[in-house]
Amino acid sequence: MEVKDVNTALLNDFEVYQLLMDLKQQQILNTIMYKTLYCISKTPCKFKSPQVVSNFLVALKIHKLTKAEKLRLFNHRPVTAVEIQLMVEESEEQLMEEQIEALLQTMTSILHRDLAKENSPVFCEPSEPQQ
């Protein structure tokens, strides 16, 4: 066996989740795949969609982040400034406080919208017809 390229591409949780879900439907999961799927299905990634991914990347363009940082933000969905400081390299130099705030706003508007609907009754839109 030969390894040609150790890092062809980075995958985000959502992509791995989709791949594993496909395999699950074909019923060819082994233990490690099952455990991985179990793990990442606990993350908010299952509420994401390809549309969300592209929206997210477009929205982050103005912040000039590296690929790794964007991936981190996407996977973790930070909601506090202290989390952003962890995930963005040299955030004290790179980002002003207003920028961090703007970043948090972006995260909320794009990534959390679906999560909020799922989990928090506070954010639920009323008068959904029930069946």
Binding site: M1, E2, V3, K4, D5, V6, N7, T8, A9, L10, L11, D13, E15, V16, T36, C39, I40, K42, T43, P44, N75, H76, R77, V79, T108, H112, L115, A116, E118, N119, S120, V122, F123
Partner: peptide, 18 residues
């Protein structure tokens, strides 16, 4: 943000060409 709802178990995967 909706405390308790945010269970993060983030992991990192890469694609490797072999």
């Amino acid at each position: 943000f909706s405390s308790g709802a945010l269970v993060l178990l983030v992991t990192m995967f890469v694609l490797v060409e072999m």
